[in-house]
Structure formats: C-alpha cells, structure tokens
Design a protein around this nucleic acid. Structure first.
Lengths: 334, 334
DNA sequence: GTGAAAGCGCTAACAA
DNA sequence: TTGTTAGCGCTTTCAC
C-alpha cells in the first residue's frame, strides 16, 4: 500500500501538485470545476497532508511552546490548570497548537530541556520569571518571539503579561487595616523572586499610608511550598498571638497555613483574620469568612497567548506588556 | 546573515553533509580527527539542526500527543495535574516531548481538533474514555500507536492503563461497612461512563458480600462537577438522614459535598461518614477524620507514557493493559 | 571511513 | 488561471 501524498492526488486528477496545494490552502484562485475535482479526489483517496513537510516548506508550525516549571511544582498547583486552560482556549481560537516543555528536577538542580533539540515552534510562552534566564538567552538569540507570563527580570525589554501583584498586596493589606488589623503577618515568597518584591512594595505602601510600618519579623520569606508555610507558623508558635491577621502572598501557602490553624484550633476570623492572594476556595471549608483576591490565572493564560500570537503575526519588536487588575473574592458559592 | 545549516558546517570543514550528520547522530563510525573538526565548526558557527527537516527525513518526531478533555474540565481538576506530571516525567526520561490537544466547548457541544491537521506525532495518549471514539477511529486508521488512559470501550482491542476502579469502590464500600455503616449514599458519575459502571460493580459486590443491597436512590448518577454534587445533596435534603455514610466516586464531587455538609452543619464523622475515591486532601480542612483512596494519577500518567513509548519503539501490536492497584489514605499530614 | 545524491512531501516563486 | 520546479534542511542508501 503506497503512501498517499499530494502527488497521488495530483496524478489522479491530472493536475499539478501546485493546483492541489492551492486548492487546499485557498492561497490562490482555482477554478471551481477543478477545485471540485481535486476535493473529490482528496476525499476518495483519503489524502491527509503531511504536516511536517508543510512546516518545512512554509517555515511555519502553527505551534506555540509553553515553558513551565518543574513537574513537581505543577503537580499540586491549581493555578497552573487555569493558566493552561486560558492558554489553550486562546490558542484554539487562533488556530494554534501547544507544545509543552517542563523543567525537571535532578536531585535539587533543575534541568532545562535543550531547546535547540525540541520541536520547532513559532513562538514561546515562558512561565516562571526566575528561571527565565535560561530560556530567554536562547529565544533571543534564535529570534523566536516570546511572551513572559509574570514580570521578567528586565521588563522594559520584553513582552509580558502579569497580574497587578503590587495592587493585590496593597488592596489586601488595606482591607485588613480597614477591618482594624494593625499587626499583620505576611507570608511571602523568596526574596529573590520579583513577585515577592512586588508584594513587599504593595504591603509597605498600604501600611505607610496608614501610619503603620513593617517591623522585622512581620514578613516571612519562604520557598513556595505548603510544608514551609506550615513550618513557618509552627516556628513562630506562640508568637502568632502578636498578630491579628495573616496575609498569604501566594495561594500555595494556604493549605499549609490552614492546616496549622486547624490543628492548633485557631479560628478564622475570631482568633485571627486571613486573606490570601489567589483564590484558595478550599480554605472556606475551614472558615466561610475567608477572603481572597482572585489572581486571574485564566485571564493571564488567555491574554499571554493572545499577545504572543499578535507578536508572531504582526512581527512586533517594540516590547509591551499587559497588567491585569485583580479583584476581591469575598465569598464564593459552590 | 545567512542561515546556518548542515551545509555551512560541511563547507567550513570541507566534508560532506553526510559526515556532519553522522558525526552528530553517531549512527556511523567517524574518524576521531574529523569528528573533532566537525564538532568545532558546529560550535563556532553555532549550528543548530533544523528539527522539522530532521523529522521529515527520518519520519520520526520524538513527540507524543496528549488528548485531553475540554479546557473547562481541566480548569478545576487536580487529578489532571498529577497525571500530566507523571506523563512529562516519563517522557523526559525517554527523551520524548509532549504535544497537548484539548477539546473545546462550543455551547454544549464538544469540538475535537482535526487530528489530521495537528502536529505529527509518534504516538498518542488519550485521556477521556468516553470521547475516545472520535480519536480512536482516526488513530487506528492512520496507524498511529496509542494508549488509552482509563478503560476504553473495547478493552480487549486496545492498549490502556487504568487504576483498579472496581477495587477502589469495593474497598471503600467495605471500609464503610466494616465501620458499621449499612446505609450508604453513593455519588457516582454518569451511567454511560465506563468508570461509573466499574464503581457500581465494586460497590455492589461489597454490599452483596455483606448481605446488603443497593436500593433505588442509594446511588446517584450525575455529571462530574462540584455544583451538581452540591445540588444532588440539596435535593435529597432531609432524606440524607437515612444515610450514615457518603461515598464519592470521584474527587471532583468532594468540594460540592463538603460545602453542602458545612453549610448545613452536618459533621464528619459524627453525623455522617465520608470517603472519597481520589485524594481530596482539602476536605480534611473540614474534618481531619476524612478517609480517601489514592487513585494514583501520577502513576497512571507515568505508566501510560511508559507503555506508549514501548509500543512505539517495539512496534507492538498485541494489545495489553496495566491495572494500577489503589491504596487507602487514612490521613495525610501537610 | 567517506562522499554523492536521492529522497522526505509540501510550498511558493516563476513562467506560461 | 494553471503548471513547472526549485527549494525547505536533513537523513540515509549506495557507491567508492
């Protein structure tokens, strides 16, 4: 059984391969009569174009790469789901496809896939601002258009979309202050993360505007895991009594914090107030009174994909960015 | 600036393109002296092979496609995360890459991507047994190797990996019975899902062995969403008093159920026992006494990828499957 | 151990 | 409006 190529179709109809190609792509006017004959042959033979060959000849893959964090991390990160859903939805609308690249952990060191050996793509979406550097160099050198999800190290030079993290922590802090909380415990990410800095900035601003200030020990910087959030509270121990509210700067901390509070019978909001940046809805199983700020992961995904396709198709060079506003979620019904 | 191809390298060194190709792939013995010279030139020129051209010539893409459910569904499904992590980890070990295809919702109808127009792959992983049919036909016709994640409609003809769903509901039911629960409310998926049938079978078996039987109304079949689980309980209302335990056959139901219980101040395990198939750890924020069965999503992903690569590389024809045993999770620390 | 060259299957520039 | 054909960049057979 011979393979059915564009040639088979051309021969069967008695036209050139070009005619078939054009009939299929519509990139050139074809007489209706011929077009019809070609389509019929395509159907009868069950011809399917070879996408690789098409990619090679046209230098276009209709595929976008998503570079994400180590698999260990996406494992328990619901944020990732929504982000991915947003990306997929937009790409689908624009008739692009998605190729997924993840980093891997070898012991404690991250292994980044060798981009030059991966499937060719028309553009890339980069998820983790901190690890960017590895990919960024490559993408820039290879002149592959890309959009960073989150704020990159040198924002002025790049396309990126981010949620307004500074505003998020500003709002959250203000919210707590307005409820009468003067002493807030901040659980923040590692100090070398750009987002952590943004959170710090937002919170400090709100405090300052209210004549308060961040004392040493009020803001804890820890890696982004539940366990460490749990441990952090544990090591604060009785010192927690000094605080009337907790602000979790990242969703992943929530489960750890909640678990600690529950274990120690510390009630929200009676004993302590709690607010999280990121929609930790499951926390409401502990207390319905929990407020959070929706960090709009779906929108981030959707808009970053949109920006990327725009960059690709319009061949944009001039960096730009989108900052997505954040919103309160007072309480969410099922 | 001219593009650097294999020809550039060959010309620079003064050898044939074949020599460069072989030096890079190692598929043929090359004298060390020449190999060295070639590598040096590759380095100096910064030559990166064009993967599309390579794919075309070798008819191999080192890429696997994952066909998943509509984006709406992955949006809130943590199961998906672990599954994906497992797949990615295995593929990485085997030096394969992942291409992601999702279905889309247009109103209420699912839209499946036209596979013949998507990126070419060496094999496929299919996630949702119910929607399989659409893909299955195509994959079979195109002779693309694939592995189904979950139990397909006609298991004897396919490669698949699944967790032991029957055993899961059997064990869970038995567990409840052993705790003295004679009247159990089962929240199961739609009746036309293969998994739902397996759950039914497992539960019935356990009941029968204990001289009990499933009365009409004891097992509720609903689509896989939180909302509907919530609504289901709501419409049962006071009738819930007739049951001393709830068994959720799928993780997604948990949040809905928990929310209902909390809102109505029904306590676990004092008022009612609860067990879920799928590790709904956040439920423990409502009650630490909640037991669940780990449905091993990571393993499923990992093993399905493993099987697929095996099928691809060994060109297996004879269908086979792997059933992953399930385990209890009595309580999970943070 | 090495080179020449014929593909891989399609696109698109050029010619008619 | 249609056909011819030279690429796209690499792999691999065949000949030396």
């Amino acid at each position: 059984m011979k393979k059915i190529t564009i040639k088979s179709v051309a021969k069967k109809v008695g036209v050139s391969t070009a005619a078939v190609s054009y009939a299929l792509s519509g990139k050139r006017k074809i007489s209706p009569r011929m077009s019809e004959k070609i389509m019929k042959a395509v159907d009868e033979l069950g011809y399917k174009p070879n996408i690789i060959a098409r990619n090679l000849a046209s230098r276009k893959t209709w595929t976008v790469g998503l570079y994400t964090s180590p698999t260990k991390n996406i494992n328990s990160d619901v944020f990732f789901n929504s982000l991915l859903a947003g990306i997929l939805d937009n790409l689908h609308e624009q008739r692009y496809q998605l190729h997924l690249y993840a980093d891997y952990l070898n012991g404690n060191t991250e292994i980044h896939p060798d981009l030059s050996m991966t499937q060719p793509i028309d553009g890339a979406l980069i998820m983790n601002p901190r690890i960017n550097d590895v990919y960024l160099d490559y993408l820039i050198k290879q002149v592959i258009p890309f959009v960073v999800i989150g704020t990159p190290p040198n924002p002025e030079k790049m396309f990126y979309v981010d949620v307004d993290l500074t505003a998020a922590s500003y709002k959250a802090t203000n919210y707590l202050i307005s409820k009468g909380h003067g002493k807030i415990l901040f659980i923040n990410g590692p100090p070398d993360y750009i987002q952590s800095i943004q959170h710090l900035r937002g919170s400090e601003m709100a405090l300052r505007e209210n004549g308060l200030k961040l004392e040493s020990g009020d803001m804890i910087h820890i890696p982004m895991t539940e366990e460490l959030a749990y441990n952090a509270l544990k090591s604060i121990g009785a010192g927690l009594k000094n605080y009337s509210a907790i602000l979790a700067c990242h969703d992943v901390f929530s489960f750890g914090i909640m678990s600690y509070l529950k274990e120690n019978n510390i009630h929200v909001p009676n004993d302590i107030a709690y607010i999280s940046l990121g929609n930790s809805r499951f926390c409401r199983l502990y207390s319905p009174a929990i407020t959070s700020i929706d960090m709009a992961p779906y929108k981030m995904g959707y808009q970053s994909a949109e920006m990327l396709i725009d960059v690709i198709e319009k061949r944009r060079i001039q960096p730009s960015h989108t900052i997505i506003p954040v919103e309160f979620v007072e309480r969410e019904s099922v």
